[in-house]
Computed example of a mutant assay.
Amino acid sequence: MIPGPTRETRSLKHPVEDFVLPAGVKRIAAAVEYCGSAFSGWQRQSHSPSVQASVEAALSKVANEGISVICAGRTDTGVHATNQIIHFDTAAKRKDSNWLLGANANLPFGIRLHWVSEQTADFHARFSATARTYRYLIVNQPQRSALFYHGLSWEKRSLETPGMHRAIQLLIGEHDFSSFRASGCQSNSPNRNVHRARVWRQANLVIIEITANAFLHHMVRNIVGALVCIGRGDRSIEWLRELLLLRDRTKAPPTAPPNGLYLVKVNYPDGFRVPQMVPGPQFIAEV
C-alpha cells in the first residue's frame, strides 16, 4: 500500500506545496457520488460498512495493490454526495478510463465514480479545497415521499421560503458558529466563513444551499433545523442572528435528519485539473 501524506493532521490553512511523491508514484483524483443510506458515513469503520471502505476495495482491485483514499469532507451516516472529491497515491500504471470503469465495476450500486484524473503532487483533496457546497432537500407536502424516502427530508407544514432565504443571508461572512456545532465536534475553532447561501422552492421541494470554506460537525443540519422553524412561522427572521450571537448550541432547535443532506461541490484553485460537474442531485432544476 502506498501511504498517504501525513498532512491529514494539519490545519486546513496549511499548504501542501512542499509534499513530494516517491519515485514512480502518481497522485490520482476522482469524483464520487453515493447514496449514504446504506453506509455508516464516509469514514472507514471496523464495525459497519462505509463509503470509504467500498471505494478503497474497488480501487485496490484495479490497482492490484492496497489503495488508501483521502476525501474533501467526511460525511455522516445517511448523508449523500453528488460530487465528493478524493485522491490516492499509487505506483500502479493505469489509464484514467481503466480506473473509472474498473472501480465502478466493483462498486455497489449506491456508489459511483464520475471521473478520474491524474494530479500534481501538491494536490490534496482536503487541504487544497477552497470551499465546499452542501444542499439540503426537504419535501414540503402533507405526506412523506415514498419514492425518495432515503433522499429527502420531510416537513408537512407549509414553509415560507422567501423568509428562509432572507434569514440565511444573516450567516454570510466569517462567524463563530458554536450555536450550530455538534457537541462532539473536534474542530479547534468554531469559526467558519460562509461565502454564499440561498433557499428556493421547486414545486414541493425546498432546497437550502450553503457554500463555505469548511463546515463544523452537523453545522448544515443544525442551520436547517433553525430555518425550518422560521419557514413554519414559529420564529422570526432576526431570531437566526440572535442564535448566531448566543454561541450556545443548547438554545438552538434539534438537528435536521441526515437523509436530506448532500455534498454537491468542492472548489479548488484553477491550477488544478478538477473537472466541473452540475451540483445536483439530478432531479433538481438549477437556478
Rank of each mutant, 00 (worst) to 15 (best):
P15Y: 05
P275K: 01
N222W: 04
E8S: 12
Y136M: 07
R201V: 02
A256H: 08
C229G: 09
A125N: 15
I67E: 03
D76T: 10
S54D: 13
F88K: 02
R181G: 09
Q186P: 04
S187K: 07
K265F: 13
R192L: 06
W154E: 01
G151R: 02
A129G: 15
R221C: 14
S128G: 15
R221F: 11
N104W: 11
V69I: 15
L227S: 01
A30E: 07
H195P: 03
Y262E: 03
S46V: 12
L59N: 07
I284R: 03
P253H: 10
I168E: 01
K93R: 15
T120A: 12
S54E: 14
T9R: 14
T9M: 06
I284M: 09
D176E: 06
I2E: 15
A31I: 09
E238Q: 04
V266L: 09
H150D: 00
K61H: 09
E238N: 02
G163D: 03
R74N: 08
Y134K: 11
P254T: 09
S68W: 03
F272A: 11
E174G: 04
I207W: 01
P269E: 04
P3A: 06
I138C: 03
A53W: 05
P3H: 07
M1Q: 10
R232G: 03
V274L: 10
Y34D: 01
V266E: 04
F177L: 02
A81S: 09
L205W: 00
Y136V: 03
E56N: 15
V206L: 13
V55I: 14
L21S: 03
A129N: 12
T211P: 04
L107F: 13
F215V: 00
Y136W: 04
E209T: 01
R235G: 02
L245H: 12
F123M: 02
C229A: 11
F283W: 15
A58N: 07
A125E: 08
K251H: 11
S236M: 00
Y134R: 07
I284Y: 13
V79R: 01
Q282W: 13
Y149S: 00
Q143R: 01
R273L: 13
F109R: 12
S183I: 05
D248N: 14
S60A: 08
C71Q: 09
W239M: 00
P142M: 08
